[in-house]
Design a protein around this nucleic acid. Structure first.
Lengths: 74, 74
DNA sequence: TTGTGACTTTGAGTCCGTC
DNA sequence: GGACGGACTCAAAGTCACA
């Protein structure tokens, strides 16, 4: 599994759980709307600093966005 | 805590546990020796694809390298 | 064995837009 | 609201000589 796809899926899921649009997330993370779109689709290759910005905006630890398996009880 | 520092510390610790030199890790990950050096010191801002390459070389899940708190029993 | 400054090439990240 | 494209800027990728 490509880590970029994994990150995209995780971000999209958490974002939707919050009921945010991509634009809202982009604003909170201080990033561009189109860039967040690309990251969610797995076509972008973000740096770890960007991962941290997105994690901060979503209020989750950064490693959470790279996680492949998410157990149900967390 | 800067996520770059965190990644550097994690990589260095796991690498040393394996008794590898930076050069050995660089070879396994398909990267340059001096680049790995920079990542370990937290002066580089690697992309997630680089993180995955290093994680693969170290035989750990990618999110493991971003983890701040490492419990003793894992 | 590792750190570091300097360097060129590539791609990360922004901004405009359309569908 | 979101996918996608083109053009742009600057930082990351990747390498080297030397301490």
């Amino acid at each position: 599994m490509d880590i970029r796809k994994q990150i995209g899926l995780n971000i999209q899921r958490i974002r939707r759980e919050k009921g945010w649009s991509q634009e809202q997330l982009a604003f909170e993370a201080g990033l561009h709307r189109t860039y967040v779109s690309g990251v969610e689709r797995g076509v972008r290759n973000p740096t770890v600093l960007i991962v941290q910005q997105l994690a901060d905006a979503l209020a989750v630890p950064p490693d959470r966005l790279l996680r492949a398996k998410i157990s149900a009880n967390e």
